[in-house]
Amino acid sequence: MKLGRSLPVVFLGPALIVLIILAAVPTLYAFNISLQNRTLSAPDADYVWFANYIALFGDARFLNALWVSLKWEVLTVSATMIVGIGLAIAMFEAATPRWRNVLTLLFIIPVLLPRVCAAFVWKFSFHPLYGAVTWPVRAITGETPDILASPLGAMLAVAFVDVWQWGPVFAVIILKLMEALPPQPLEAARIDRCKRWEIHVFITLPMLKLPLISLILVKAIESLRSFDLVYVMTRGGPGIATETLDMYAYSQGFIEAGKISYASGMAVVMLVLTVVMFTMIWKRLNR
């Protein structure tokens, strides 16, 4: 394939230069700030080297945020995959091509909505006095259940909204993957009188192992961007039950103390954790 001598450089060069600057400058800057004791109120600062990092690992709230983030990742990724695979199989088995098209379009909608909107839609539905979801409980028992006020309820409710946004679109992607599989193994299994669930458990899903793992990775990356959801629905509450790392960094850096260096240290820890982890997994997958 010949593209001429200048075209690759002219086409690829500017984009790469811009991306490298946009990635490297903030990263180095974040590291630099995290070595100081900068606050939002005072412009000048001294280098305190690794004091912020040492303080972080003695900070119970930081360790809590780390734990909450881990729970959040595991909960949302696994629930999204279960919903995605389940709905995909249901569409594959029981929907006609026309219905598949309708559902495809419908299932793409939630993920395209601004997360702020999805959060508000459900926050109002979960409202103890006026919500539509809590209405049956009100009507039957007369109580006003406040889901977002209990630690477990809040976590599950926010995770539910995340899965509501991502599960359906994953179902669409998995359905398209299943449709693209070669039909012969499935037919052979049918001739051998396999039950339908056996076909999926032993044939289609194992055949889709690699793309499914990539999807898990994609969801794990997107789950890290849950700040808007948590911010609107719970603000990390009740207490610190849903305070993820980005929520805690935000409140340390902006709301409570303005400790921008401390927050930056947290951001660097997050950055190193995620970039190293995801890069290793991704490279391994695509080898």
Binding site: L19, I20, A23, I33, F227, D246, S264, M270
Partner: peptide, 16 residues
Amino acid sequence: FALSLRFLPPVAVAIP
């Protein structure tokens, strides 16, 4: 590299 930018946590970009 273009994909890996998606790995960057938004907070880690926002603060600096």
